[in-house]
C-alpha cells in the first residue's frame, strides 16, 4: 500500500463551483440528479472531468412542501462519477474508471482497472484510491485478488523531491 496526501479535495469555501455538462436530468422523486456528457466540475485549481456524474440527495418529500433551505443543507448523500474520471488539483492528477464521494463516511474512492495518481513526474498506479476527505489522507491499494494484497507500482523521479 502507498500512503500519500491527496490534496485533491482542496475545495475552498470562498470560490464558486462550476459544473458543466451536455445534459442534466433531475429525478426529484428518486432524489437523483444525473449529469451526462463532458461533465466538468471546477473550483479554483481543482477540476473533475468524467462522462457521467450522479448526485443522490434526500428527496424533497412528496407533498413538495419546500423545506427551508437550511433543512436540505445536508441532503446530498452520495455522488457517483464514472466514465474516464480525471481529477486534477494544483499539484496532482488522478485518473480512474469510477469515483464515489460518500458524504456519510466523508470518503472519496477512485477505482477501476487502473487508478493512476501522479504528482509531477512521480506516478503511482494501483486499483483503488481511498481518500479520507477530512484529512486528505490517501491510500492506494494494489490490484491483487484479495483486498490490498496486490502490488502498487510506484515510479519516483529522483529530482522531483528537491522543491
Amino acid at each position: 500500500q502507498g500512503e500519500s496526501r491527496f490534496t485533491g479535495l482542496k475545495l475552498s469555501g470562498d470560490q464558486p463551483i462550476q459544473i458543466e455538462s451536455d445534459k442534466l436530468e433531475v429525478r426529484d422523486a428518486d432524489g437523483l440528479a444525473i449529469f451526462t456528457g463532458n461533465v466538468n466540475v471546477m473550483q479554483g485549481e481543482t477540476l473533475l472531468k468524467s462522462t457521467r456524474m450522479k448526485v443522490f440527495y434526500a428527496k424533497s418529500g412528496d407533498g413538495n412542501e419546500q423545506a427551508a433551505p437550511g433543512d436540505s443543507m445536508q441532503s446530498i448523500e452520495r455522488i457517483e462519477v464514472d466514465g474516464k474520471v480525471y481529477v486534477k488539483t494544483q499539484t496532482q492528477v488522478a485518473t480512474s474508471d469510477q469515483a464515489a464521494f460518500d458524504m456519510a463516511t466523508d470518503t472519496l474512492t477512485m477505482s477501476g482497472k487502473e487508478v493512476v495518481l501522479s504528482d509531477g513526474p512521480n506516478v503511482i498506479v494501483g486499483c483503488k484510491l481511498t481518500v479520507l476527505m477530512s484529512t486528505g489522507e490517501a491510500t492506494l491499494d494494489g490490484c491483487g485478488k484479495k483486498e490490498g494484497s496486490g502490488r502498487v507500482k510506484m515510479l519516483l523521479q529522483p529530482s522531483s523531491r528537491s522543491q
Binding site: 475545495l11 469555501g13 448526485v55 440527495y57 434526500a58 436540505s72 458524504m103 477530512s134 486528505g136
Partner: peptide
C-alpha cells in the same frame, strides 16, 4: 484542510437545494 472540507460539504448540498 478539514475546515475547507466542511465547507465543501456545505457547498455540495447547495446543489441539492437548487435542484430540489
Amino acid at each position: 484542510h478539514s475546515r475547507r472540507v466542511r465547507l465543501f460539504k456545505i457547498l455540495l448540498p447547495a446543489l441539492a437545494i437548487l435542484l430540489a
